[in-house]
C-alpha cells in the first residue's frame, strides 16, 4: 500500500514535475537535449533556452516525424533526449518512432500531453484516445501514465536514468494524491486503497475517481481495492493477478478508447492467469465533442457514479 494524502486539494499541473528533473540535470550534464516540434516552449522558457540549454534546445518547427528522426540520431550520439508533444501527434510520427527510436533502444523520453481525454477537449482532432493502442505494441518501449504530479515527477527521474525509450502519457492538471515519499516501481500497480470485494484498476485521473468511488461503495457495504495502473507496460501483472485472486472481480477505468487501452492489457493478464468477472470503463469508439468539465463527463458516462454502477454490476456477477 502506498500512502495517499488525507486531504485532496485543487488540481496541480503535472508538467513542472516532469520537466524539473531534466532541467536540474541539464545544469551539470551536457548530454541532455530538448527536441521541440514547436512543442516545448511552454516549459522551456526563453530564459532557460538562453541561459542553460542554448544549442541543446533543438527546434525542428512543426514537424513531428522529423522530430522523431532527429531524436533517434541525437540519442545515437549518446545524448539524452526529451521530446514533448501532444499525445495524438505521436501518431503522426509513429513509424519514425517504431523504426528510428525503438529498434535501437535509444534514450528518448517522449511526453505525450492531453491524456485524460475529458480535460481540455479541443475537439475530435485533438482527442488523445489512441496513444496507448499505438504505443503499447511497440517492442522495447516502456509506456507510463502518471496519476498526479508526484508520480509524474518520479517517473521523469526514472526516465532520466533509464537508458532507453519511454512514452509518458501525461495530462495537464490533476489533484495531487500521493505523498512526496512515493516510490515509483516499474512494472508495479501500487495499491492506493485496500479492499476485499472488488478491485478498481484506474489510470491517471481514474485513480482519484477510483478512490472516490470506493468511498461511496464502502458506505453501501462494498469494500473496493484501488490499484494505480501507471506502469502500463510493463504492466503490474503480479498485483493484478493478486487482486483477481483476492477480490474476485475487476473494473478498469481509463480515458482512452476501449480498443487497445489499459483495460485491454489488464483483461489479457486476468483472462490468462485468473479469470474473474471484469468490466472496462473507457470511451466507446467515439470522437469527443469540444468542451470539458462535468457536463461532458456526464455526457460520455465517465463520472464517479458511472464507475460505482459498473462496480456494483460486476460484483453481482461474482459466483
Amino acid at each position: 500500500m502506498v500512502t495517499i494524502k488525507k486531504e485532496i486539494g485543487q488540481p496541480d499541473p503535472l508538467a513542472p514535475a516532469i520537466w524539473t528533473p531534466w532541467i536540474e540535470a541539464a545544469k551539470t550534464d551536457n548530454s541532455i537535449v530538448v527536441v521541440s516540434a514547436d512543442s516545448a516552449g511552454r516549459n522551456i522558457t526563453q530564459e532557460l533556452r538562453e541561459t542553460l540549454f542554448k544549442d541543446r534546445f533543438i527546434a525542428s518547427g512543426i514537424q513531428e516525424a522529423n522530430a522523431a528522426l532527429i531524436s533517434g540520431g541525437l540519442a545515437d550520439q549518446g545524448l539524452k533526449v526529451i521530446w514533448p508533444d501532444m499525445g495524438w501527434l505521436f501518431e503522426r510520427a509513429y513509424n519514425a518512432v517504431t523504426q528510428t527510436i525503438t529498434t535501437e533502444h535509444y534514450h528518448v523520453m517522449m511526453v505525450g500531453s492531453g491524456g485524460g481525454a475529458l480535460a481540455g477537449g479541443a475537439g475530435p482532432s485533438h482527442n488523445n484516445l489512441r496513444d496507448l493502442a499505438v504505443m503499447l505494441p511497440v517492442p522495447n518501449l516502456i509506456v507510463l501514465a502518471p496519476a498526479d504530479a508526484v508520480e509524474a515527477g518520479k517517473m521523469s527521474e526514472f526516465a532520466l536514468k533509464y537508458n532507453g525509450p519511454i512514452y509518458l502519457r501525461t495530462m495537464a492538471m490533476s489533484p495531487t494524491i500521493f505523498e512526496n515519499d512515493y516510490q515509483f516501481n516499474l512494472g508495479d500497480a501500487p495499491t492506493v486503497r485496500d479492499g476485499a470485494d472488488v478491485t478498481i484498476i484506474g489510470m491517471q485521473e481514474w485513480v482519484l475517481k477510483g478512490i472516490l468511488a470506493a468511498n461511496s461503495l464502502a458506505a453501501q457495504g462494498i469494500q473496493a481495492r484501488v490499484l494505480d495502473c501507471s506502469s502500463v507496460k510493463p504492466i503490474g501483472k503480479e498485483a493484478i493477478i493478486k487482486a483477481a485472486r483476492e477480490t474476485g472481480a475487476i473494473v478498469t477505468a481509463e480515458s482512452t478508447n476501449i480498443h487497445g487501452g489499459m483495460g485491454s492489457a489488464v483483461a489479457g493478464v486476468v483472462g490468462e492467469n485468473y479469470p474473474v468477472p471484469l468490466k472496462r470503463i473507457a470511451l466507446h469508439d467515439q470522437y469527443l465533442h469540444s468542451g470539458g468539465g462535468k457536463l461532458v463527463e456526464a455526457y460520455y458516462h465517465q463520472t464517479v457514479d458511472d464507475l460505482v454502477a459498473a462496480v456494483k454490476e460486476t460484483v453481482q456477477r461474482k459466483k
Binding site: L69, G73, D76, Q99
Partner: peptide, 29 residues
Amino acid sequence: TGGSLGQGLGFACGLAYGAILKAPKPLIN
C-alpha cells in the same frame, strides 16, 4: 536501422547535429 523509407535523412540530421554538440571545442551558437 532502416527499412521504412524516408527516414534516413532525418536520422542523419540528428547524427550531424549531435556530432557538432559533442565537438571538443567550446559550443558556439
